[in-house]
Design a protein around this nucleic acid. Structure first.
Length: 569
RNA sequence: GUGCCCGUGGCGCAGUUGGAUAGCGCGUCAGACUCCGACUCUGAAGGUCGCAGGUUCGAAUCCUGUCGGGCAUACCA
């Protein structure tokens, strides 16, 4: 679990502090000032591998020009045996450092030693975190929105795992409630239309108009004929729900499997009802003095928990609202299952809900009433996908039934392209042009990255045929990798552990995509500039090792994103 | 009305614990393969970072105001 970027930065901070002590002991700088500043990697490599801003930051406290401070520090800095080989003062008072061979060598060794575990860290400290995502209603097929949410949740979970959290992937199945009832009624109406004719049966105004509902009804009609028509309507609706919902859940499971997403748990809402957990949760709220009855309904005193208005928990007809069930569900996540952190990935259209719900779940009154002693709830909101076919905007709506489903999408576009493309920054709108995305060529960055991987594999195979295997890191001389293309490539390789931590911290797994595109770009540049086959032996071995190291890191990144790393294309 | 998100070359986007001349891809133009995979690489053109103030050695980044776009504000989920 090495992080050479972090190690070098820490070491630099210490070198600067020692230099300051030495300089002040000699009277060059005032003593007792606090030396602060950041050591960072400059955008432009012409400004060194690391740049320190300490001299500028200390200018005011030390009452000296920044450059004078920088000169004094530079004079006393002791670089021998460190990860740095030189220091130069530049600009307004920047101190620019260059990395030594030892550092480059350690990077290659770290990847070799850690193998597929390279990039991992203990940033998360083993905390148990649940990522709940997709959780699509089982009332119909999953949509493009679920395609995005699926990749986002899955990749986020992978990134969290990478930085040392214990991750649990969960799909919450809304197999109870109004939407399910409406689903049953919709199928029932279609079935009765088959029995009695289209015009004889009115379809519910707010019903599901999708073709999948018609198909399901037709399927049942094909098997059962009109034998169900004699049953009472309520029983018939019940029957269609019992047939349709499990069937849809099975389809979702299969389609997600195709999309390479697997959940640790499919948690059915019905379990919360059947076990009496929702009832019990409501009782706890009432015992905690957080509810009251009005107009025949049970209300939550949400205003006392910081909200604008109170909310209904149990309707006047006795059924529970989504809100009530969700409180019970989260009580289960925290109090019963003991997760230290729960991240719910949702579409941005749930924004209103998340604001109210987070405030509620933070409130000490509600937590103590529910027996939640620890654990934090987060929402990761994902902006909507704007689906286009050329210039035409494709509407995504389950109601109209004209939505393009996840499965349809995967018929048109490779899983790799989909997973890579949908892994975009969560909080930005994503414009997805089908006409563009179906093209499986260099338009899509995933091919650029996969090509780099395949290219390295074929290179290694060719050299292997020459009798030249990839050497061990200790058997190569990194000092022959002195060119800018080699150094820039190694620096990018060293960045992965840090990049993973940032991706996890920002809840933005798309950082890994951008990272691996940049890594591939640097590899292609290296490959073009630096020939390998037929070079002098020490050069050949060092470059071959670098290429192989790159291959490993690309494969790790693609694994996080859920994209395959092909050996040939 | 209120709350949250987003305004960065023609298009799509990086870059926000404040750092040096604001980057990348596509597109446009000009180049590079007798050689490890041309699904690649090199170079050029293209910007008042929505607008206006403020904070300081320094602002795309922080603060205030303002304009534009999206989403949300149910006894739906």
């Amino acid at each position: 679990m090495s992080n050479l970027i972090y190690s070098a930065g820490r070491q630099l901070d210490k070198l600067l502090l020692d230099a300051y002590r030495a300089a002040s002991a000699e009277g060059l700088l005032p003593p007792d000032a606090e030396l602060t500043g950041v050591s960072e990697i400059p955008r432009d490599p012409a400004n060194g591998d690391y740049a320190a801003t300490h001299a500028m930051a200390a200018a005011r406290a030390m009452r000296r020009p920044p450059r004078a401070i920088a000169d004094a520090l530079t004079k006393h800095i002791e670089l021998g045996g460190s990860y740095f080989e030189s220091c130069a003062v530049a600009g307004a008072g920047f101190m620019n450092f260059t990395l030594s061979d030892k550092w480059y060598s350690d990077v290659l060794r770290a990847v070799e030693t850690e193998g597929s575990g390279y990039g991992r860290s203990d940033f998360g400290g083993g905390e148990r975190v649940m990522v709940e995502f997709v959780s699509a209603n089982p009332t119909g097929p999953m949509t493009i929105g679920n395609a995005r949410g699926g990749v986002l949740g899955d990749a986020l979970a992978s990134v969290l795992d990478m930085v040392g959290y214990r991750v649990h992937r969960e799909f919450y199945v809304n197999d109870a409630g109004n939407q399910v009832e409406l689903f049953g009624k919709s199928v029932e109406a279609r079935y009765m239309q088959l029995c009695l004719g289209e015009d004889a049966v009115k379809f519910p105004d707010d019903g599901y108009h999708g073709d999948d509902i018609r198909e399901l009804a037709a399927d049942i009609y094909g098997r059962e004929g009109d034998s169900l028509a004699a049953l009472p309507e309520r029983v018939r609706v019940r029957r269609f729900i019992e047939i349709g919902i499990p069937r849809n859940i099975g389809l979702m499971r299969a389609h997600l499997e195709r999309y390479r997403i697997r959940f640790d748990e499919w948690f059915p809402e019905s379990r919360l009802h059947e076990s009496g957990y929702v009832d019990e949760t409501m009782r706890l709220l009432t015992d905690g003095g957080l509810t009251y009855e009005k107009d025949g309904a049970l209300w939550l005193k949400n205003t006392e928990l910081g909200a604008d208005k109170d909310e209904v928990l149990r309707r006047s007809d006795g059924s529970y609202t989504y809100q009530a069930v969700d409180i019970a569900y989260h009580r289960d996540k925290f109090a019963a299952r003991g997760f230290g952190r729960v991240i719910d990935v949702l579409g941005a259209d749930h924004h209103g809900h998340t604001v109210r719900f987070s405030a509620m779940m933070k409130s000490p009154k509600l937590r103590s009433a529910l027996g939640i002693t620890h654990g934090e709830l987060e929402f990761l909101l994902m902006q909507m996908v704007l689906l286009k076919r050329g210039a035409e905007v494709v509407k995504v709506s389950k109601r109209t039934g004209k939505a393009l489903t996840l499965n349809d999408l995967l018929d048109e576009i490779s899983v790799d392209a989909c997973r890579f493309f949908f892994n975009a920054k969560p909080d930005t709108h994503l414009e997805f042009d089908l006409d563009l995305a179906v093209r499986q060529d260099s338009e899509n960055p995933v091919y650029y990255v996969q090509y780099a991987h395949a290219r390295i594999c074929s290179l290694i195979a060719a050299l292997g045929a020459d009798g030249c295997a990839v050497p061990d890191a200790r058997d190569i001389d990194v000092s022959v990798l002195r060119g800018a293309p080699e150094r820039e490539l190694i620096k990018q390789i060293a960045l992965l552990p840090e990049e993973a931590i940032q991706a996890a911290r920002d809840r933005d797994p798309s950082r890994i995509n951008r990272y691996v595109v940049e890594l591939s770009a640097r590899f292609h540049k290296f490959y073009t500039a630096c020939h390998i086959r037929g070079e002098r032996e020490d050069v050949l071995k060092a470059r071959l090792k670098l290429a192989d190291t790159t291959r490993r890191v690309i494969a790790i990144c693609l694994g996080v994103t859920g994209v395959t790393a092909p050996e040939r294309m």
